[in-house]
Amino acid sequence: MTKAILVHEVGGPEVMHLEEITLPPPGEAEVLVRNRAIGVNFIDTYFRQGHYKAPSLPFVPGNEAAGEILALGPGVTQFKIGDRVAYVSALGGYAEERIVPADRLVKLPKSISYETAAAMMLKGLTAQYLLRQTFKVKKGHVILVHAAAGGVGLLLCQWANALGAEVIGTVGSDEKAKLAKKAGAKHVILYREEDFVARVQELTRGKLCDVVYDGVGKATFPGSLDCLAPLGMFVSFGSASGPIEAFDIGLLASKGSLFATRPTLNTYTARPKNYAKMAKDLFRVVKDGTVKIAVHEVAPLADAVRVHQALQARETTGATVLVP
């Protein structure tokens, strides 16, 4: 028997309950992992509320964690019992132990703690594909990062700054503005007090941005398009304020032959070789100090309800980690 957070019906944070479950032994190409630290992400709230549909009910939320291997299924040769590992995988993360496909695991360097790994796998790999694959940020680029003090936002600010880009971030409070600036944002816009489009035009002297990274969604669209220079790219990777509704694709033409994309981490990590390469790149920038992982809070797994309440109230910055 092991303990896990179960969701029997979709709804508010209160639908999550800590219960005992029984796991089968790992099957072909599977591994049993004891989670030492579990990452919390905004996408967890989407599944819990039913905005994203879980394969079945009840389900265990959570997509990332770090821990050690307890048992190997048939055919697993790349790992051994006791290996330190981290992963981004299907639902099932909010648990003391879980079964994970072996090709979703990466070996965790000794220099990176379980808490840091759990806080950075989903958000860090998201930052990796956004900056290094969806749009290859280079020295001299001007980029706009919405929710710059959020989990992904802080990583984007740090990494893009290290790549030589000029980072403009939007945030909701003075406290978050300080965090974004510390992380590498050259300019910070308080979106509740300022018109972010007008401010971007002012800051760039009308030249606008090469790329906009938008994890907010409805509240920042279509304003984000007005922040882009001709041939710029709008990257929508989340919808914290609600999804962007269908729009006239002609907008992209009228606003400067823009590009728009809605990437997902699952697509970029679908091939194990690319997944491993992305993780290696992420571990490199964390180990050399280019990117620092801000763990906002380490809370017991049993506190998942309170943690989700704080997350949805926008009371958190950086990352929150649950510990079984």
Rank of each mutant, 00 (worst) to 15 (best):
G151K: 01
S257Q: 12
A299Y: 08
A279T: 13
V212T: 15
A180I: 11
I38F: 02
S257D: 13
P55L: 07
V76S: 04
G124Q: 06
A162L: 03
A240T: 14
L72Y: 03
H8T: 14
E97Y: 05
A185V: 12
R262Y: 02
K181Y: 03
A147Q: 09
T220A: 01
A304P: 05
A117H: 05
G184Q: 13
G150C: 07
A160T: 10
D288S: 12
A177N: 10
A119S: 10
E202M: 04
P243N: 02
Y191H: 15
S257R: 14
N63W: 00
V295Y: 06
A310Y: 02
R104A: 03
E175K: 12
V10K: 07
G27N: 02
L108H: 07
H187A: 11
A149M: 11
A219T: 03
V298Q: 12
V285S: 11
L282N: 07
H187I: 10
A183I: 14
A319F: 00
A102R: 05
T320Q: 10
F221Y: 06
V167S: 08
L282K: 05
N161C: 10
L32R: 14
L18V: 15
A147C: 09
M121R: 01
H146E: 07
D103K: 13
A299P: 02
Q158M: 11
A54F: 00
A37S: 03
K287H: 09
T317V: 15
L282D: 06
F259V: 10
E64M: 06
T116E: 14
A276C: 08
R132K: 15
G215T: 07
L282H: 07
R48I: 11
V216G: 00
K207I: 00
P24M: 02
P263A: 04
A102V: 12
V235Y: 06
E97C: 13
E68C: 07
G140A: 04
F59P: 02
V211R: 06
V152M: 08
G151D: 05
F47E: 00
N266W: 08
A276H: 14
Y46D: 00
I168H: 08
G153T: 11
A127G: 14
D248G: 03
K176Y: 09
E20Q: 14
Y46M: 01
V145G: 06
V211Y: 04
R104E: 06
A310W: 08
Y52C: 05
G250I: 12
